[in-house]
Each structure stands twice: as structure tokens, then as C-alpha cells.
Design a protein around this nucleic acid. Structure first.
Lengths: 276, 276
DNA sequence: TAAAAATACTCCATAGGTATTTTAT
DNA sequence: ATAAAATACCTATGGAGTATTTTTA
């Protein structure tokens, strides 16, 4: 059913020593116990992890893989236990998510000046996960671009920026000063549907090699600009609003405090869009 | 000792239902079992997770925290089991790490054309972890900038780029065409020692608000450029070499194949440095 | 007083131990 | 022949069950 972390720890030690006897010794258990537990782990996972002879123990590819995965698992578990204990001891944490291209750090610094005791974690959203982390609790607060599903959330607009189109420098439209949507007729526009790219950087890479063009908010074009791409404002495209977002039912002071600071700070800052 | 994932799953269900009876029902166990296991979990963690009365069960802050952490733990564990099984079934994976600003995707696409059956995972390194992920097995292959600890690694140079200095647009040197190292005398240069920033973006944010300036490879300045920063080539600074790196003892075909493709592809591509 | 969590106890699955056998070099 | 892993068998911890008590809204 559930992976047994004890068995995983045993496996990690064995993968290190490549020797049942010495691994068992380090684990303060008897060698036959280790044999049995590893065998049980192999059965639970449904694959062979080690090739044993009486003279050598070597990892299979699956074993090598599990050895790496075990690192990640223990890191996650240890961090979880540590953070829960911190919260129990009264340490406050705040997870702030932000869409690519939006700059939260001014707000973070301003908040840190007011509530230095709150530990801040930043969390760059990928473009396909807008509001999701706010709903499932991975983030306390978000700095997002509209549109997204706002039901159950409190979204306060803090600015707007024009849309631009990103083109390779070699593109026929690259030299034009300003474009309108109609100019893009017949172009292959990369979007969520056409191909699931995993990051803004990847999307821009695709544009650079001529796989298409893309419409993005100006701040994205500015933050991830490259020498082989140009961008032009689309005069007749709707501007993009950015919002600070919290769960509607949120009443935790540290979150509301950050919200207040963020609205002040991000509102004050001139839109990145006017910086061009 | 080890966190018990079974107890954690019980807790997750209880946190969902906020009712011992119904949570136990969903878990197909008896209510007293759940009571006892949750109590044991609280003891193991050393903190109270729930405030119970006969009419209500509510989470403490530590409980709320654990509820979120549990998500991450199960996601990690599930992914681990899935990937190990994939490897056992013969699915090949390759983890490619790259330093900020370096573009691996041309190599990735070229490799995907040759060995489409190998799943590729990209992994953007933070600036303080250069070669570490190659040593501990988190990555099979790296695209790094010198210098780094090359013992036990095979590093093949694939290009060089000039160093630039990043300044706020308001800086006294911002208007100068080309600079030399001596021009920076008396400036506060942000580096690894002066402050441990967690990402390039953060470092640039610090520069933008006037906390200092920084010397970075040109490709970093280009990839993370912002309208409120400028960069100038440092005429007399050593250029930065970038390398493709694998473990010296690596003999796995998929890694060596990628290495071959990468050397061809990244060598061919004109240096990002000449793109300016 | 009634709904719900906690306690008391019993049972059994399984982790762990010791003694011994098997196996590959 | 021997080092090392596997097997056999035993013990005991702790997970799960049923019956019952305690608690508070």
C-alpha cells in the first residue's frame, strides 16, 4: 500500500555500502532482517533493485533510480517535519506565488521591514497553474494576471500592461514599429493549446528557432528577453490586468498584512509596462 | 524515528473530514484506531495537530501546516515509485542541468530527434550549486560555466562569453560605452560572499533598487534583462568558458549520446555573446 | 442527553533476533 | 574453502478490532 520509509532507509544504506552485512551493521539490525526487508521492498515495488552474488551486490537501473528518488523523498519528509515543528513553535511563514515576469520582491522587502519575524517563500508559477496553488494551499497569496477563476478568491487589481507579440529578429514583421492583431493573420501563434511548453523560457526558445510566434504580456517579454527575439506592442489588444490574490475566507493576520503592504508597494511602483 | 506514511495518510483524511468517525470510515478502519494513530503521530512530531471536542475537530496551525506538507510528501513518494517502475520497465530518462542564462534546448531538441524514446528532464541550477547535482546523481549531464570543481568530472568546453557589469539605469556609469575593471573601484559588487541571494532574478532586483552592482556573464545579463538595468562589457575581464559536463566514470549510452549531440549542437550555435 | 472522541482489552501481522543452510567465487 | 546472502524459526512490538467509558455542547 504505502511505501514504507523504514524499508527505503534500509535500501538507501544498502545502496551506499553494496554489502548486506556492513549496511545492517550501520543500521543496527541483523543481516537477515535487512535481506528480508529489501526483498519485501522489491516485491512491493514489483521490480528487482539489486543483483546479488556472494561476492558482490550491484544496483539494477531501477535500483540506481530508487537511490536518487530516496534522496528526494527523505529531503521532502525531513523538510515537512521541520516546518511543522517550526509552525508549532510559533514561527510564521508566508508563501507568495507570482506569475512569470511580475516582480514581487519590492513588496517582499517592504513586508520584511514591517514583519521581519515572518519567513517568506517565493514561488514562481508556471503559466498553466494560475490560481490553483491558492486553492490547494500551496501558496497563501498570489500575484497573478487576469483572467483566472476568481470564485472563492479575493483579487485586487494593481496594474495593467499592454500585450506584445514576440517574433524572431528574422521575422517579416520584426522591423515594424507597432502592430495590430490583424497583422498576425496567418501566423502560427503558440499558446496553451498548440503545445504544452513547460516554461516561458522554452516558449521563447521555440519562437527563436522559428516554430511560431506568441502574444505575451509586456512584462514577460521584458523579463525573459533574448537578443534573437524582438517584441512589438499590439495596439488594439486588450491590456492585461495584474492582481494580488488571497483566499476569500482568509483571516490570518500575516497574510492580510502582506496584502496591505503589497497593494501599497505594487500600486506605487510604476507599471513595468511604462518602463519601455 | 521515521515518519510513518500510513499515519500521515490517516491524518490527511482526518484533516479533510474534520471528523474521526467519518474519516475512519473512508479509511476502512475503526474509529478508535484512528484516534490512537493520530495521537501517536502527534507524539512523534511533538506537537498538537488537532483541537478536539465532542462537537468539532479543528486543525491547529501546525495541523494546517502538516496538511500542506503531506501533499508534497505524497506527491514526491508517488512520483518516486512511478519513476522507479518506469526505469524497471526500460523507460530511459536523462536529467540535464544548466546554469542560468545558458540555453540547452537546441541540444535537447536535436537529441530528441535522434533518441525520442529517452525522456528528458531539464533542471535550472542555482548559481551556488555548480557541479554538485552531477556528483550526487541529481543530474546526468550539466551545461555549466567555469570555474567549478572538475575532479572526477569530464568537462568539454563549448564556448566563451565576455563578462559584463550590470548597473541601474540611474547609475553614474550607466551611460558609458565600455568599461574596464578599474572603473568599478569603490563600487559595492554583489557576489556570493556579500549576500546569499536565491536566484539571478533576486540579484537583479537588488541591483535595480540600488543595493549594489554585479559582474555576470553576458548571457545572464541578456536572459534576465530588465528595463531598469543596463549592462556594459568589461573590456579587460577574463571571458567565461561554458562546458558540457558528465561524470568521468559515466558509460551509459544515453548520456554519452546526449554529450555527442550537445557538443555538436552547442558548438555550432553562434555564441550568445556575439548576438549583442 | 446524545453524539463523538477516548480508553480497555484482545488478536495478529510483521519487524527483529539467533541459528543454520545455501551459493558463488 | 570461505565469505556472504538466504532461509528457518522464534519473540515481541504495535496496528487493528470490539466493547465500553468519558466528555461537552
Amino acid at each position: 500500500m504505502d511505501l514504507d520509509l523504514r524499508k527505503l532507509r534500509y535500501f538507501a544504506a544498502l545502496a551506499e555500502h553494496r554489502h548486506f552485512g556492513r549496511a545492517a551493521e550501520q543500521l543496527y539490525i541483523a543481516q537477515p532482517v535487512l535481506s528480508r526487508q529489501i526483498r519485501a521492498l522489491e516485491q512491493e515495488l514489483g521490480c528487482t533493485l539489486l543483483l546479488r552474488t556472494t561476492r558482490s551486490v550491484q544496483l539494477t537501473p531501477a535500483g540506481e533510480s530508487l537511490r536518487e528518488e530516496a534522496r528526494a523523498v527523505f529531503a521532502t519528509v525531513d523538510a515537512a517535519v521541520r516546518r511543522v515543528n517550526e509552525v508549532a513553535r510559533g514561527v510564521e511563514r508566508l508563501v507568495v506565488a507570482f506569475a512569470p515576469g511580475l516582480h514581487v520582491s519590492p513588496a517582499v522587502r517592504a513586508f520584511a521591514a514591517v514583519r521581519p519575524e515572518v519567513g517568506i517563500e517565493l514561488f514562481r508559477l508556471n503559466w498553466w497553474e494560475q490560481d490553483a496553488p491558492l486553492r490547494d494551499g500551496r501558496a497563501d497569496l498570489g500575484y497573478l494576471r487576469r483572467p483566472f477563476d476568481e470564485t472563492g478568491l479575493r483579487a485586487v487589481p494593481v496594474g495593467a500592461e499592454p500585450r506584445v507579440v514576440c517574433l524572431p529578429t528574422t521575422h517579416r514583421l520584426a522591423g515594424r514599429r507597432e502592430l495590430v492583431l490583424a497583422d498576425l493573420d496567418g501566423e502560427l501563434v503558440l499558446d496553451a493549446q498548440s503545445r504544452r511548453t513547460s516554461s516561458v523560457e522554452e516558449k521563447f526558445e521555440l519562437i527563436a528557432v522559428g516554430h511560431g510566434i506568441a502574444m505575451v504580456p509586456l512584462s514577460v517579454a521584458l523579463s525573459y528577453s533574448r537578443p534573437d527575439l524582438v517584441h512589438h506592442t499590439l495596439a488594439d489588444a486588450e491590456p492585461v490586468e495584474s492582481c494580488v490574490v488571497v483566499a476569500e475566507d482568509c483571516s490570518e493576520p500575516r497574510v492580510l498584512d502582506f496584502l496591505a503592504v503589497a497593494l501599497r508597494t505594487l500600486g506605487e511602483v510604476p507599471d513595468v509596462g511604462r518602463g519601455e
